Simulated scan of single mutants.
Amino acid sequence: MTRLTRTRNRNLNGLQNEIDRVFDRFFPSSDESEENTSPQAVWRPRMDLIETEDAYRLHLDMPGINTDDLTISYKDNELIVSGERESSCTDENEEFVRVERSFGHFRRAFTLPQTVDADNIEAAHDNGVLTIRVPKTEAARPRQIEIR
């Protein structure tokens, strides 16, 4: 007879999320004291960060989230992306057997260097990916030095 047992299998992503939650609890970002009325973050969208000579580019996975449900703000060198993904409801005669997608409120905060051009930050949402372009100031860009 085969016995079914439930085991706890932790992968590195789960462990990283747990560590992030602990650090966020003990070392909150500078604006959390102002956002005490906002709901607690339940999940974090996956993100890629790319640096070019003239800008930083962030790509965040946001499938199923409307742009109306997203908020992007910048204050004191911190870029904050937050929002909420609604849970899909089942019919009265249906029951979830397995749920792997995350729902609820999310919040990601990124501390940016002082060399960014905050007035020209741009964001676009396309095919479930939020792309935020943060340009660098002219002084921060690499330049060629002429030899005399």
Rank of each mutant, 00 (worst) to 15 (best):
E95P: 07
T137A: 06
G128A: 00
S87Y: 02
N77F: 01
A140G: 02
A124F: 03
D54G: 01
E78L: 09
D126N: 03
V99M: 14
I19V: 15
I72D: 07
I132T: 01
D31T: 15
G64C: 04
S38R: 15
E146D: 14
S29H: 12
F96C: 01
P113Q: 13
N13P: 06
P113G: 07
I80T: 15
F110C: 02
L58Y: 14
E122T: 14
E18G: 03
M47A: 07
E78Q: 11
E146Q: 10
P142G: 07
D48W: 05
I147C: 01
A55F: 08
T131K: 10
R44G: 08
N120P: 01
L49Q: 08
E92D: 15
S87D: 09
P63S: 06
V81C: 02
K136L: 13
L58E: 07
S29L: 06
S38A: 14
R46V: 02
P135C: 04
T71P: 01
D54Q: 11
I65F: 07
T90W: 00
A55N: 09
T7C: 03
F106Y: 11
T7R: 15
V42Q: 11
D76T: 05
F103K: 01
I147M: 09
R143K: 13
R85I: 04
E78R: 15
P135S: 02
E35Y: 13
E100M: 10
L130F: 07
S87A: 11
